[in-house]
Nucleic acid binder design. Structure first.
Lengths: 158, 158
DNA sequence: GATATTTATTGCAAAATGCAAGTTATTTAA
DNA sequence: TTAAATAACTTGCATTTTGCAATAAATATC
């Protein structure tokens, strides 16, 4: 089990590079960060700023500016929550949805190409395994408690 | 197969967050980027700057400065190649190796905790699947040729 | 031996980041 | 019910990161 880290490091790096290439849709050039942001807003149901920022592991002030930029581009919409006007609910505009879908499609196309080197059974197994692994990662909450003797005090972990 | 992107997006995000928490060893605070850099130097055999920069998908000028910073920290070493003195070969110093190993260990510990929610068979299957997938991603070279009708011309993809 | 190419480094200007402080809205409590 | 405390964001500012253009140094090509 010692090469687990190696396997995941290589995989995430490759997927990251791949993701960098899926950022241009309908004349909109989207940064990797912005693409994650769109993805997360698409997936959730009118999330608040904090919810998305935390999901992405981004500082709220940085996130606030990223949102501003996407609002200026006309890709997302910010609405005050009716029940608590402090919170801003995020949603995709129509162009935003189109861009999100376009990125989705490009990513899936690229994944499909990689999948073409796998047998249907291998594809099936991979996806199922990743699904199970995601659930395990969700249960495992050890992130940000390094509990590491050598840990420096100014390791804020965020 | 439509949820492939979703599965990988969630996984890479979670692994990324996890990775952010594994960056403090022996009093050295290491950024995520620096950790990838150390990892890649550790894995290769006296790689050149260009090799590592390309592997990481980083601009060479940015990479040059990242290297400078790690050299100043005393974690890596830069040597002119004997056969071609233009190229700089990178290697880990002793403290650098210790830090790289420390990060490896922390990551593996965290992965182990996630694995504890899986059966041994599921672990086995997951690792095997990822290994096969990595090979497939290596063969698939479609990255950076979006071939996308809506693609903007200034999408340099790197 | 002169020119072109390759590898890496700086200059600079733009973009991203995060802490501290501020604003507006809601909750708590006196 | 109103004054203080808390919560959700936003902005000021200083630092860091990034990448293109230009440069320096070494090698290759002709």
């Amino acid at each position: 089990m010692e090469n687990a880290r190696e396997l995941f490091q290589v995989m995430t790096r490759r997927l990251g590079l791949l993701n960098k290439c899926c950022c241009s849709v309908d004349g909109y050039d989207i940064s990797l960060t912005q693409s994650h942001l769109l993805y997360e807003i698409e997936r959730r149901r009118n999330p608040s700023m904090q919810q998305v920022a935390e999901a992405l592991g981004t500082d709220l002030t940085t996130f606030s500016r990223q949102v501003q930029s996407l609002v200026r581009m006309g890709l997302i919409h910010k609405t005050a929550a009716p029940d608590d006007r402090r919170v801003s609910l995020l949603s995709l505009t129509s162009p935003g949805e189109a861009v999100a879908r376009g990125i989705d499609r490009q990513m899936n196309d690229m994944l499909d190409e990689a999948f073409s080197f796998l047998t249907p059974f291998e594809q099936e197994t991979l996806l199922r395994s990743v699904q199970i692994f995601n659930e395990a990662l969700g249960k495992s909450s050890r992130c940000c408690q390094p509990a590491q003797e050598g840990a420096s005090p100014n390791n804020t972990c965020n």
